[in-house]
Amino acid sequence: MGRRQTDSEPTRWVYLTLLLMGLVSCSLVYMFMSTVLRPTSKIYSFSEENLAMEGGGGVEGCCRGIEGLELWGAAVKWGTDFKFNSSVECCEACKKMCSGTDGPCLCDSWVFCGNREACGSKFGECWLKKQKDTLAPERQEAVKTVSWTSGLIFGRGEGIVGLETEYGTLHIKLLPDCAPHSVTYILELLGLRHCAGCQIYRAESRGQSWDSEGNHIKDASFGPPFALIQGTLETHATTFNKIPTEACPLIRRGSVAWVGSGPEFFISLANHEEWKRSYTVFGYVLPEDMVIAEKIAELPTRPDVWNNINVSVLEKSVPLWVRRIKTSHGANVRANSVS
């Protein structure tokens, strides 16, 4: 009796073909999943956030105003026919009129009456307005008690001031919807036409802890150096009043923030997630000007100790001048001397 033939030759080739197709399919699936699930480090920069902020917004969710302030200006929405339950809703309505990418906003200021007792029949009124000069907004000064809350919105190319140094001008995009009290103070400095006493006195590079994009290098220390330049925006011409804590997002490369309640401030050269949400951020340095901040961070320094922390203090402080910035349809900016 002959041996039983278990598989014919054609059937054997079919099995081999199916096996090969299965191996190829598994390899393709593995490559796809490896690509999708591979850990990546996200690069945070002002330019990414700038796409949103230049359209009239600041840090996501910011819609703050100043109580007891009534801004004047040409009305684009009359509050008698335009009412809301909160100042946030009024602010957001203004932002919706500032979503373009090619110039100033149709609405750059809002005024809301939110005190039911003081406002009476005006309670809930939301006036959307347009300023002649967003860096010098008109306000009601005659009345002692103001029942209104007001805020500013800066569109693309608007709300940019210059911190001029001998090494170049740092163009700062201000965030009035996130830090209205802070921005009001900066605008007051513009009104004084000088900033005698303003200076940068501390400078620390990124060292070996952060890369050129501001990302922290794995297993590196968090300083010193601490990747920042620090100074003061207090002028000899006025008495500085402490600024209340406002929006405190994570510090990113380019963030301009107060140390405590000011007037000490710093510009971050790196992304500092380790600092959590500890500082009021009132602006961002435009990305093309970060080379100036980096240049200042490399100036000669001497070591010092502040509250048991090793810091680097500039051998020669860098004076600052606050400048207005001329704009062209919100696109190009250049410094315009005002002192």
Rank of each mutant, 00 (worst) to 15 (best):
M21Y: 07
P300C: 11
K326S: 09
S205P: 02
V256R: 05
L286N: 11
E188N: 14
S268I: 08
K96S: 14
L37S: 10
A220S: 15
N271Q: 04
I66K: 04
K77F: 05
L170K: 08
P287R: 03
K95F: 15
L286K: 12
H181C: 08
F46Q: 15
A74S: 12
A142C: 02
S45Y: 01
P244N: 08
S25M: 00
L19K: 08
V14Q: 06
A93R: 02
F112R: 00
L18D: 03
L16G: 09
C198N: 08
I251E: 07
M53C: 07
E246T: 02
C62L: 03
C62A: 13
C90Q: 07
E188A: 14
I66T: 04
A270I: 07
V318E: 09
P137K: 03
C62S: 14
K173N: 09
Q208E: 12
W321P: 00
V76Q: 11
V313L: 02
R3Y: 03
L233P: 06
S34W: 05
L314A: 07
Q230G: 13
Y284T: 05
S87V: 12
V285E: 01
E164I: 02
A293H: 01
I229Y: 10
V256W: 02
H236C: 10
R4M: 13
A227I: 04
E48Y: 12
S41E: 08
K295E: 14
A227R: 06
L187P: 06
A93K: 05
F154A: 02
L192Q: 08
F226Y: 14
G157H: 09
G68P: 01
N241L: 10
S182W: 04
Y284K: 09
L286P: 04
D81N: 02
T80K: 06
W306S: 05
E49S: 03
V76R: 15
